[in-house]
Every structure is written in C-alpha cells, then in structure tokens.
C-alpha cells in the first residue's frame, strides 16, 4: 500500500451487485415517448399485413414472399411475414435509435458527467447500456412476433403448420419455431446494437449516431447484394439475418443460423471492445 493510500479516506464498500441501475435504464428506454411510438409502429406492421391479406379478394399469388403465401393457412405466418418485412429497415432503425442514444444522448443532455461522478465506472456504464440495448432488441422482435401471432390466429386460425420443406409440424412446435426465429433475430439486432453503442461514444449528437448506425446496416445490406464482392458476404453483419427462415424447415437447417450467431457474436465483441477503448479515456467536456 502506498503512502497516498494510507492517507486516503476509506473507500465506501460497494454493495452486492444489484440490477437497480439496469432496471432504471430499462425504465428510461421503455417510458420514453419516442421509443414507445417506435414500438407501436413495429407492432402495427403485423396487424396491417394480416388485415391486408384478409381483405384482399384473392390469396397472395405465387410470386408473393415465402411466408405471405402461407398466411391464410396458418396465422403463425403473420409473425414470420412481419419479421421479414421489418428486418429491412424498421427493426434496425428501432435498435439504432436506442443504441445511438446510449452514450451520446447522455453526453448531449450533460447527464453523462453526473452518472460518472456518482460514480459509475465507465466499463460498468457501457455494460449496463449494452445490456439494455440487447434486451430492447429482444423486446422488439418478440413484440412483432407476439402481435403477429395474436392477430394471425384471430383472423386465420392456428392448427398444424406446414413448414417450408412441405412437411407438417404440430402447432406447439410451430410456436417454438417462431420463438426461435424471434430470438435469433434478437441476437442479430443485438450485434447491430454493439455497432450503435460504439458510434454513440464517438459523438455527442444522438441523432447523428442513430443515422450512422442505420447507414452501417444499410451499407451491409447493399454490399450483400453486389455479387462482385461475394468474398465479403459471409462477414457482413446482415448476411445471415434472413437465415431465420431455415428455422421453419424440417429438420431445421442449422448451418446458416449458427454461422449467423458466430458473426453476430464477433461483431458484438469487437464493437463493444472498441466502444470501451474509445470511451475509457475520453474527455467528458459537456
């Protein structure tokens, strides 16, 4: 022990790790009107799809996307159709809005300096912020799935489900498959959240961080559609996102999903560490 520490005021002992700060963070995210409006939009899409399919005179044609064709057979497909549609922009945007706001929003308000002098260690702050982002990603995908399921079952009924491979599985198993797909997409979006968290440590403008995060995911989608850079495709954040459809085959085709999980974990780890490297020594001057 050094001389300095001998004269130091005894440190106040930290209490047992408690979820209070995380709970407070989740309340902050889920009570904010802007975020509630975003979740309402996410929930409106499956309702809109179900009503549109129900009210159109004919069934969706053979050229309709995979899940749309099956909606009239089984209401569970409303969930899957809605997830497919929202994966393009709505879900990434929702996660980018939360992640971009995570650090930049607090810096912008000036509340960051007061959190840090509480004190909250910078690593703990990032960990709590990222945990909240991950939970929000799961809330978002499961919200879409549950609303889709409820409206789908109400309008089209349930029962056994014909998988994309053409074989039948029980309704309960179908329910499990939809839950798996939602969880997989939750992981995928959580990795985008890590990118957003990193960008959020670079600026004091939360909107700028959100836009940059959306651009990152859009650029990834665009690159994924350019065949000349196909060597890059397996490493793109969004490349494996659509693999959630494989969860609706019999038997489940795991390879795409597993690769997707590896890529998501790699992005989450790399960008979380980048956020930490950036934030650990950053001057907080507003």
């Amino acid at each position: 022990m050094s001389a300095a520490e001998l004269s130091a005021t005894a440190a106040v002992p930290a209490r047992r790790p408690s979820p209070r700060f995380l709970a407070s963070e989740l309340r902050l995210v889920l009570r904010r009107r802007r975020n509630l409006a975003g979740l309402a939009v996410l929930a409106a899409v499956p309702i809109f799809i179900a009503i549109a399919v129900k009210s159109s005179a004919s069934q969706p044609g053979a050229d309709a996307p995979d899940f749309f064709r099956s909606i009239t057979e089984n209401g569970l497909f409303v969930s899957l159709a809605a997830l497919t549609v929202e994966l393009g922009i709505f879900l990434p945007l929702a996660v980018a809005a939360i992640a971009g706001d995570a650090v930049a929003g607090e810096a912008n308000l000036g509340t960051l300096r007061y959190l840090l002098v509480v004190p909250v260690s910078r690593l703990r702050l990032l960990a709590v912020k990222y945990t909240a982002i991950v939970l929000f990603a799961f809330v978002a995908t499961f919200l879409v799935a549950v609303v889709g399921m409820v409206i789908g079952l109400a309008l089209f009924g349930g029962g056994n489900l014909t998988t994309l491979s053409g074989t039948q599985i029980s309704f309960t198993e179908g329910l499990g498959r939809v839950a798996l797909a939602s969880a997989y997409l939750g992981c995928a979006l959580a990795s985008l959240g890590a990118v957003g968290l990193f960008i959020s440590t670079l600026t004091e403008q939360p909107i700028a961080a959100t836009i940059a995060t959306v651009i990152f995911s859009a650029a990834s989608l665009i690159l994924d559609s350019i065949p000349q850079v196909d060597w890059l495709h397996p490493y793109l954040l969004t490349h494996h996102w659509t693999a959630f459809g494989d969860l609706l085959r019999t038997p489940i085709a795991w390879s795409g999903v597993v690769q997707g999980l590896y890529v998501a974990a790699a992005y989450a780890l790399v960008f979380f560490l980048a956020a930490w490297a950036r934030f650990a020594g950053k001057d907080v001057t507003n």
């Binding site: 002992p13 930290a14 209490r15 700060f21 959190l115 509480v118």
Partner: peptide
Amino acid sequence: LDAADRTSDP
C-alpha cells in the same frame, strides 16, 4: 442517480 450508485442502500 441513486440506483446507479453501488454504495447506496436501496
């Protein structure tokens, strides 16, 4: 802010 403080008593 109190929730963020690991030393305060909930």
